[in-house]
Design a protein around this nucleic acid. Structure first.
Lengths: 136, 136
DNA sequence: TTTAACGTTTACGTAAACGTCAATCATATG
DNA sequence: CATATGATTGACGTTTACGTAAACGTTAAA
């Protein structure tokens, strides 16, 4: 029988590293930075679903070009306590800031994709021209 | 009379720095990396529209988390010569790679925005509850 | 004429994010 | 029992992308 991911409750550091395509060194580094806190079985680390989610969020943030410090702040937004009213306002401001950044990135992506599409169009047109020049 | 941007044909390094919110050091660094090549008027640098476009592309790439090396590759895609057929295939592959990266980033952004929206929803709900608890 | 204001080159410093050993320990397997 | 496998903790090295400071050269204004 295959071991479905959902059935597993814990992973070693090497398993996580393979699954996410990062080194064990990187995973330990994120822990040293206080971004993951795996269980300890004696000397060894044991990663649970919660830790995997964390790692996934970290790597997603990295793909978007956020620094680890920024990623930490974003993750902190996720697992906060309900909190007091005054805190909540400040909290909403932080969320708004992050959203603004993300929307800027989204615009940047749209522009770049448009430009790439144009370059690709030129390229394909040129290819067709060469095809005719070849006498086909 | 105001000097419209479109009328200007050249800028000093300090003007560019102010306009784009970067340091002159950074601009010179991009030049040292071969990403910009401003005209020289004796000792001084003179930036033309073409250089501004370059700088804009560099900064956009940075916002998306690309390294300068990657940004250089992307820019190289833009100002290439038509080229030969064999080169064009390779060229199209490069474009496809970049597009895949950008689309991954776009998915990452969508996910993060969704999560932030959920967190914000919880936050606002909590605020309304507090409002009622306050007796208003 | 001196003193800002703006520019230049050269060079060393630095923060972030790991990479890369080395030494050590536990377990497991032939 | 010896060796291989996988983990651990230091600790120093490396790359990227500039920051920062020194030393110097031009105008331009007081």
């Amino acid at each position: 029988m295959s071991e479905l991911l959902a059935e597993r409750a814990a992973w070693t550091i090497a398993e996580l590293a393979r699954e996410f395509g990062v080194t064990t060194r990187a995973i330990r580094f994120y822990e040293a930075e206080g971004m993951i806190a795996p269980e300890r079985q004696g000397q060894h680390r044991l990663y649970h679903p919660r830790d995997r989610v964390r790692l996934k969020l970290i790597l997603r943030g990295k793909r978007l070009g956020f620094t680890l410090a920024e990623i930490r702040e974003i993750i902190d937004l996720y697992d906060r306590e309900p909190g007091e009213a005054g805190q909540l306002d400040h909290f909403l401001e932080k969320i708004a800031e992050r959203r603004a950044e993300l929307e800027q990135k989204r615009r940047d992506i749209a522009l770049t994709l448009d430009e790439l599409a144009e370059v690709e169009g030129n390229c394909r047109r040129r290819l067709r021209e060469l095809g005719r020049t070849d006498g086909r």
